[in-house]
Amino acid sequence: MTNKMIIGVYDDEGMLMSSIRQIQEKGFTINDVYSPYPIHEVFEALKIKTRLPLAAFLYSTFGMLATFAFLYWTSVVNYPLVFGGKPQNTLSFVVILFVMIINIGCLFTIITFFVREKKYPGVKPEILHPGVTDDKYLIVIQKDEKLSKNDLESINTLLKNNGAIEITEK
């Protein structure tokens, strides 16, 4: 397998979408699509999903349990301070619990986002086309051994017929 890829450059969202549909109808696999803003139809067409909401739920649940354990330990076990004869394991813990669910949920979700995306300060971007963060859309198809010469030609034709303003290989 080589690292080479075919890149179709578009300047219109409608053309990009019709191109994606036709390429998929012909049975070719699109590796990635680049755009200057999020396009929900692209997510659906490429069938990509994320488990971030599940992760956020788990983090928040962990946040709640960990905070309750901490509050219980400090207020009931480690230093049970009596004030006004009220129970140490009190309902007013709910405020701290509520805020810490949000705190830990947010913090860990953000960390997961950066880790999964491999986004750190100083990461060198692999820029396939200079206009992709401005006004251009890209369809990227991996050139692997399974694709015959005829396949490559028909991919090129498909990209071109659907309004690609530029077709490059990298």
Partner: peptide, 26 residues
């Protein structure tokens, strides 16, 4: 440096939008 190597591919956008919604909801 501050763009953290952002290139705007579909998966990044999906995660970006989802993270924004989660942060918003929380």
């Amino acid at each position: 440096f501050f763009s953290l190597g952002w290139i705007g591919n579909a998966r990044s956008w999906l995660r970006f939008e989802t993270t924004a919604l989660i942060l918003g909801g929380l």
